[in-house]
């Protein structure tokens, strides 16, 4: 499978006003396969937008490598095949929706006839067919977002960067965008989806990378990340001696009166613990826990904070 994006040891350092240095992105490496929806999640300020801007050639990496569509980031030829929807996009307010799209079409050197065909098509696609002749200053936030999406579809791109595409939108618009992303997936497009709205990512993404404080902390397919879920073994009357032996195998141990909850991550350990405690303690329950991405995210972010 070809790679749409390859990032190796990417570092981006900012120098603050007072001269102090901030590592916005620190030794991040990942790759995005063609045809997949890649979720890029992290809290605000984690380095998501910096990474996207670096991939688009808007920022220059301090060190490391960033390749997009097989070309170095920022390459004009690669830009023919990609598109970008920034977070809360704004456009020239004096223009109508159709005029803005016409302007963006011109940036692709599209001829007049092609533009006249393309613009209404795009407006229809994002549900603005009737509002194309209204000035943008009359548009709601959701409508502007739709214009943003429309401009990102002009060149029928192979790779799309969506930065927080659903932020601040109502549930219906939210759903529309999810549908759009799913349809892009069906068409075989690659989508690099940055978000802190975990539910979006969870429903549409093939793979997810979690970034926190500039560092990539977890990456994998949804199944890998979530199925590697924990199992909670609940025991009653576990002796202190035995607890000491079990503890190294456990991720986390919680005591609740007579009950002891042992969290483990691998199946192997589940069996070991059950073998060790059999007969010495009363087994109350063994429950495999399938984590939500949200749990995972919160957990990672919390760890990062310690």
């Amino acid at each position: 499978m070809a790679e749409a994006i390859v990032v190796e040891d990417l570092c981006k350092e900012y120098r603050g006003r007072t001269g102090d240095r901030v590592m916005a992105v620190n030794k991040v490496s990942f790759s995005v396969h063609e045809g997949e929806i890649f979720g890029f999640i992290g809290p605000n300020g984690a380095g998501k937008t910096t990474t996207i801007k670096t991939l688009l050639g808007l920022l220059f990496p301090t060190s490391g490598k960033a390749m997009v569509m097989g070309k170095p980031a920022g390459d004009i030829e690669a830009k023919e095949r990609i598109s970008y929807l920034p977070e809360s996009p704004y456009f020239y307010e004096h223009m109508t929706g159709a005029e803005v799209l016409d302007f963006y079409c011109r940036l692709f050197k599209m001829g007049g006839a092609a533009r006249r065909k393309k613009v209404p098509e795009l407006l229809d696609r994002v549900g603005l067919g009737k509002d194309g002749s209204r000035a943008l200053r009359q548009y709601s936030k959701g409508m502007l977002q739709r214009v943003g999406i429309a401009q990102s579809l002009i060149n029928d791109p192979d790779l799309l960067f969506f930065d927080e595409p659903t932020s601040g939108l109502d549930p219906i618009a939210h759903k529309d965008i999810q549908d759009l992303i799913l349809s892009l997936r069906k068409q075989g497009k690659t989508v690099f989806l940055s978000s802190h709205q975990l539910s979006d990512v969870e429903n549409v993404c093939n793979r997810v990378a979690i970034i926190n404080r500039g560092e990539l902390v977890k990456m994998g397919t949804m199944d890998e990340l979530l199925h590697a879920g924990r199992t909670v073994i609940t025991l009653a009357h576990l002796s202190a001696d035995l607890l000491g032996k079990v503890q190294p195998l456990a991720e986390h141990v919680a005591e609740d009166g007579e009950l002891t909850k042992i969290y483990t991550e691998t199946e192997e350990n589940v069996h070991k613990i059950l073998d060790m405690t059999r007969g010495s303690a009363n087994l109350v329950s063994v429950v495999p826990q399938r984590q939500t991405l949200e749990d995972l995210f919160v957990e990672i972010v919390r760890e990062g904070r310690h």
């Binding site: 830009k79 023919e80 970008y84 920034p86 704004y90 456009f91 963006y104 940036l107 401009q151």
Partner: peptide
């Protein structure tokens, strides 16, 4: 300020 520059430079604009 309007972030229009990002969408423009993300296009094949030198």
């Amino acid at each position: 300020e309007r972030r229009t520059i990002y969408t423009i430079l993300a296009k094949p604009v030198k």
